Simulated scan of single mutants.
Amino acid sequence: MMVCQLGLVYFILTARIVSAQVLKYALKGQDITLVPDLSEKPDAIIWVHDGINVVEFNVMQERPYVYPTYEKRTFLDQNTAELTIKNAKYEDSGNYDLKLKTDNKYDRLKYTIEVIDKVTKPNISCEMINISQAMLVCTTECKCPHLLKFKWRSQGKEQTGPNLNITLSNDHDDQVYQCDVSNPLSKEIATFSAKDCFPGETYLARIFIRPDIMPILTTAVLILVTGFIFGYMFRRKYRCSVCLQKIRKRISSRRQRTLAKVPDIAKCGNDFAQQGSEEALMSGKNEGKGGSFVFKARPSPSRRNQTKKEPGKKHYQIREMEGTALQK
């Protein structure tokens, strides 16, 4: 066993590269198979993954020896040097070196393996630019985004990339866009209808959300509101002026009627003054007899009512309000 190991060390150090590095992809959970192109059956084989031995074989062994890390899921065909790894994991990605000995010739082959996921079903979303333009965005989940390829298809036209700018017409725009997402080993497809950019909205309703229409609508609304307020104020002011004119006319009419009654009122005042002087004279006579009486004259209520009906007649009632006898 010691001689075998020394021979393998010498074999690894002296092997020459006979092919360039080859990149291969493998789906997670599936098998990885590396098939070297050989013309003869090798006498010695060793596979190395990122500096760690995977499996080895030489003519002095009955069967290949698999190292513990890859035991039970790694298989080697000793006739062709073909390597198979079952149930691939992300950790299996990396560089693989194959060292061969054939008729005292030492060769070396290099491979690069990258374990990737299947492409998941893509999702298409719509981002509005304005009322007539939108951008479709195609996305998918993947641990290897650098390997994804996007392609849009519609009406026989194709465009690469995850984004696609489209033109919208109205609610009846049934144009369908297809997004193809692929990686080196799998592919998925999703479709999108242009009318789905506005779920539950009508074409007329969408006009009011246009960025270029909103300022115009706002200005129009302000103008209408301002015009309504000024119209209401003007109408109210006009109506108040008409009411004021009517009130002035009524006041003027009443003033004229009052002035027409002035002569009768003056005559009434003269009669009242004369009656008052007579009462004052009677009061002076009573004082000389040792008594003092104060009289107040006012129209009788019944007479006042009659006075309103018959302005030409004056009726007065002399009522004694207070009497005081003074004894000396």
Rank of each mutant, 00 (worst) to 15 (best):
V22N: 12
A134I: 02
G284L: 12
K285I: 12
I213P: 02
T160A: 11
P42D: 01
S241H: 03
L13P: 02
C144T: 07
D43H: 13
L98K: 02
Q5S: 14
E71Y: 04
P145T: 03
G290W: 00
G312D: 15
E82S: 08
L224F: 11
R257L: 12
T80S: 15
K246T: 11
G227C: 11
S169Y: 03
F57P: 06
I17L: 04
Q155E: 15
L109C: 09
I45N: 01
K105N: 12
L83S: 03
D271P: 05
L185C: 01
A220G: 13
E91N: 10
F234N: 14
G269S: 15
D173C: 05
N87E: 09
R236K: 15
W152L: 01
S252N: 15
G161M: 07
Y238F: 06
Y90N: 08
L98V: 06
I131L: 05
M1A: 11
H315L: 14
Q245A: 09
K285S: 06
T84A: 03
T202E: 12
M214P: 05
I85Q: 01
K296G: 07
Y25Q: 06
E158Q: 09
A20D: 10
T140P: 05
F208E: 13
L98I: 03
F198Q: 08
P122N: 08
R206L: 01
R298Q: 15
Y65H: 06
V9M: 14
G276W: 08
